[in-house]
Amino acid sequence: MGVGKLLKTRKSKRMAFALAVLLPFAVWMMVYMLIPLVSVVFYSFTDAKMGYDSQSFVGLYQFRKMFTSATAMISIKNSLKAALVIVPVSLLLSMLTALGLDALSERSSKIYTFAVFLPNIISLTAACLVWRWIYHGQYGVLNFLLNLMGIPSQQFLKSQAQAMYSLCAIHIWSVFGYYAIILLAAIRSIDKSLYEAASLDGASYWTQFFHVTLPMLKNTLLFVGIMLTTSAFMFFTPVQLLTNGTPGTSTYVMLFYIYQQGIEQGNTGFSSAMSLVLMLIILFFSLIQWILSTEREPKPRKKVKTVKEVNVA
């Protein structure tokens, strides 16, 4: 069979179509993902520095350096702390928001959905400038409100204890609406008759939530969880714009430290090694969530015979 004949068959035509449409994406993948990934792995085992042409292989030196560097360890600790706050709080907030939006009437839900989505279409950089004022120690709106309630002014971004949480709040504000809408779509796609059946079966709202809504949202929740974890470790903009890692090193997160080391100080090798570790951490947490939510086949109580279709009377 000649090549021409082969191309004429339906299967190969479909193959050609698939290749043609996937090609742009494949090129994009190569340039922006695969090559950088390979370079990161490569550079983490070298002493590469920006502005120098040559580098030599140094084995695990960069990793050893990282695990003995106090600042690096603090940045890892801070990132974990941020993730530990951002992921559960965002997840809970998105879930509650989605349930609330679902309970609203069709018309008002549209307005509120837009309001909830708004943080996503505002530039985070611009928003951070606003947040700087909200958090301002003397003139900030937040302190004004706290004072109204009789609570003394707080330092927020200038306080070692509060800065990290204040930044996390900005991050949560910027992402929860998006995930709320994803969850809302998933909630709305659940067959209404399941709820009707459950309510006739005597289930209260929360029983229905735990026995119908939550299990039906499992896949979506897994997706949201992984996306949130990734975004929590990629948490960077507010740090760079508002605190630069200060006060002290209390808001040094991994990505900020990588940026400082790699871009500002040109330590390509070191920042590559750190990036690799960051990637592995994200992978690790995503994997945990995936394992936790994969379906376990129920254990039969009795031995189940294999039965043909059809039925019995």
């Binding site: 008759s193 009707e196 459950a198 026995h211 299990p215 499992k218």
Partner: peptide, 13 residues
Amino acid sequence: ISMVFQNYALYPH
């Protein structure tokens, strides 16, 4: 009261 639905409405999980 209990009800049987046209689309069965069984809990898939």
